[in-house]
Computed example of a mutant assay.
Amino acid sequence: MRAAAGFTGRANSTVTCGDPGMPVPGALRTVQGFAREHGIKPTAHVVNGSAAEAAIESAGWRVDLDHPGGSESLVMTGPLEKFADGVAESLDLPGWWELTAGSEVSDVHRHVLGGGGNVCFASLTEDGVVIAAVRGAVVEDVLHVARLAVRPSHRRQGLARKLMGELAGWGLEQGATTCVLQVAEHNTPAIRLYEELGCTEHHRYRYWIPAVS
Rank of each mutant, 00 (worst) to 15 (best):
K41C: 03
I40H: 05
G33I: 11
V46R: 00
G70S: 07
G21M: 13
G69N: 07
S58Y: 10
L65C: 06
G49F: 15
A55P: 01
K41V: 07
D66H: 00
G9E: 07
L74K: 01
S71G: 10
V63S: 03
L28S: 02
G60M: 05
C17K: 07
T30M: 14
T43I: 08
G78M: 10
P20M: 13
G49N: 15
S73N: 12
D64M: 03
K41Q: 09
G69S: 08
F34H: 00
S73A: 14
E72W: 02
N48T: 15
R36H: 00
S73L: 11
T77G: 13
A55C: 02
I40T: 08
P68W: 13
F34G: 01
G69L: 03
W61Y: 07
D64S: 06
E53Q: 14
T16V: 09
Q32G: 08
A54C: 13
G33C: 10
A51E: 09
I56L: 05
A35E: 00
W61T: 03
A44Q: 11
A59G: 10
M22H: 05
V31S: 03
P79T: 12
S71E: 10
V31L: 02
P79L: 07
P79Q: 07
T14M: 03
A51H: 06
H45Q: 15
G9Q: 04
N48G: 15
R36G: 04
R62F: 01
T77H: 13
M76S: 08
G60R: 02
G70Q: 06
S71P: 08
N12L: 07
V63H: 01
P23I: 15
A54F: 13
V63T: 12
L65Y: 03
S71T: 07
A11V: 02
A52Y: 12
S13I: 04
G60S: 08
H38S: 02
